[in-house]
Simulated scan of single mutants.
Amino acid sequence: MTDFLLTGFDLERFVRETLAEDLGEGLPGGGHDVTSESVIPASARFSGVMDSRDAIVVAGLPIAEAFFRALDPDMEIEHLVHDGDEVPPGTDLMRLSGNARAMLTAERSALNTVQHLSGIATMVREYVDAMDNPDCTLLDTRKTIPGLRTLEKYAVRMGGGSNHRMGLWDAAMIKDNHVLVAGSVGEAVRRAVEAGVKEIICEVDRLDQIEPALQAGATRLLLDNMEPETLRQAVCIVAGRVPTEASGGINLQTINAKAATGVDYVSVGRLTQSAPAADIGLDFTPL
C-alpha cells in the first residue's frame, strides 16, 4: 500500500472491499476475474499509461496506485503529476509496469476512483475561479455518496475548496426542522449551548432571526437562500460577531455576486453531489 493517509479513512480496507465487490467474493462462482484468467497468461506483463482526455484537476492517484499494488506488490508505478495539479487534455498521469492480470483486474476500480475524485476537484476549481474572491472560502456540504465522504472531501481540498463539518458529530447545525420542534431559533440555539456544544451553526432565512440566534450563542450563521442585497444587510447586522456563510441557490453564475457581499464562506452541495466524472483512460502495451 502507499503511505496515503486521511483521518478516518482506511485505505487498505477500501481497496480490499472495492476489489471484493468487483470480483464477486462470497458469491456463487465469484472470487476471480474470469475474463483475465481465461484470456491472459499468468506470466504475462503489461506496461500502461493513465491519461486524461479532458482538462482536469487531478485527485486520487495514490488510491489508484494502492489498487494495483494490492494485486501486484512489485508493480513499477511512476506518478507523472500530483493530486491537486491542474493539467491540460492529453496529459499522462501515471505510468505502470507489472503483471498483466493484476493490471486488468484493478483497472476499473482504480479508474472509477480517479475519475470520480478528479471530477469533484475539477468542479471545485471552476467554482473557486468563478468566485474570484480570496476573502471568501468555498465549502462543501454533507451531500456525499455514502461511504465515500472522506475521499470526496479530500477531492474538494485538492480542487482548492475547504471542508464544512465532516458529519453530524463535529458541529451542531440548527436548521428549520430543529427550529420547528424547539419553537424558535433562539430556543434551538440555547438548547445546543446548554448541551455543551462548542460549535453551533444556525441557519437563518430571515433577517429578524439573526439577533435571536446570536444572543442565544450561535457561533456561525448560515444565511440560507438570500439574494445578494439581503446578504449584505445580514453581514451588516452580524457586524463581524461570528462568521457568516451563504448557502442555497449558488451556482457558477451566482457565486461571484454572493461571495462579494462580505460573507466569510459560501457552501455548495453540488461540488460532491453532482460533479461529473473526469474522462480518464488507461492504455496497456504487452511487454
Rank of each mutant, 00 (worst) to 15 (best):
L117F: 02
E107V: 13
M173A: 14
D170L: 12
L117V: 06
T122N: 03
L168R: 12
P134E: 11
N112A: 06
N163I: 08
M166P: 02
W169E: 10
D176F: 13
D176S: 15
L111W: 03
L151I: 03
K175P: 12
R125C: 00
A121W: 01
L138G: 02
L117W: 02
L138D: 05
T150D: 08
T137N: 03
L148E: 05
A130W: 02
V185Y: 06
L180G: 15
I120Q: 01
Q115P: 08
G119C: 06
G161Q: 04
Y127L: 00
S162N: 14
T150V: 15
V181T: 14
M123L: 15
K153R: 12
I145D: 01
V185Q: 10
D129P: 00
D170M: 11
A110T: 07
M158Q: 15
L138R: 04
V185K: 07
V181L: 15
I120N: 01
A110M: 05
V114Y: 03
G183T: 12
N177H: 14
A130M: 05
S184I: 11
G160S: 03
A155N: 07
E107T: 06
G167M: 11
L117I: 07
G119I: 05
A121P: 03
R157N: 09
H164V: 04
T144G: 00
P146T: 04
G183Q: 11
E126Q: 15
G119M: 07
G159V: 01
I174H: 14
L180E: 15
D135W: 08
L168C: 11
L139K: 08
D135I: 01
Q115W: 09
Y127V: 00
S118D: 06
E107D: 13
I145M: 13
E126S: 12
T105C: 10
D129G: 00
T122S: 12
